[in-house]
Amino acid sequence: MFRSQVSNAPGWPQFRAAYGVDSFGGDGYFTRAVQNGYNLFYFTPDYGKRFTRKTAADAVHSCSSCHTAEALAYGLVNSDRFDAGLDRRVSFEERVMRCYAGPMDGFIPTLYDPAVRDIRVLARAVAHHLRLSEGARTDGS
């Protein structure tokens, strides 16, 4: 049965507490987008099934198989930069779209699809928790 409301995936209350999502409100558009981003990030075959051919049985099946939430946040603040391999500037959204198509053996979502937007929103929430500024590096400098 399809329902519009965001589902409660396992581990969400702990994630929410650990990364201070409640600083954006107990509930609300933004918080729900963060939650949807969490669902997509950790349970991609269930919540992003339209854009991936992977199933839970595959070794690499979700974004979290390769990335941590912190890495996602650092990825956001270091995005929108020139990529020598592609010879152009690449946005965060494009990186997410390329991930769906490549490692997830899936398809390219449209730019404003919640499957992309909510990953960015999740990254933003984590970046806020980590007090990252633009261009922050993982070595702490």
Partner: peptide, 25 residues
Amino acid sequence: GLQNTMIEQIANLSSVGFVLPSLPL
């Protein structure tokens, strides 16, 4: 390569079965 063409497609229909009940909001 799809990651370079960035072409959107119909995408995965595997969830489509005989019927997919839904609840209007």
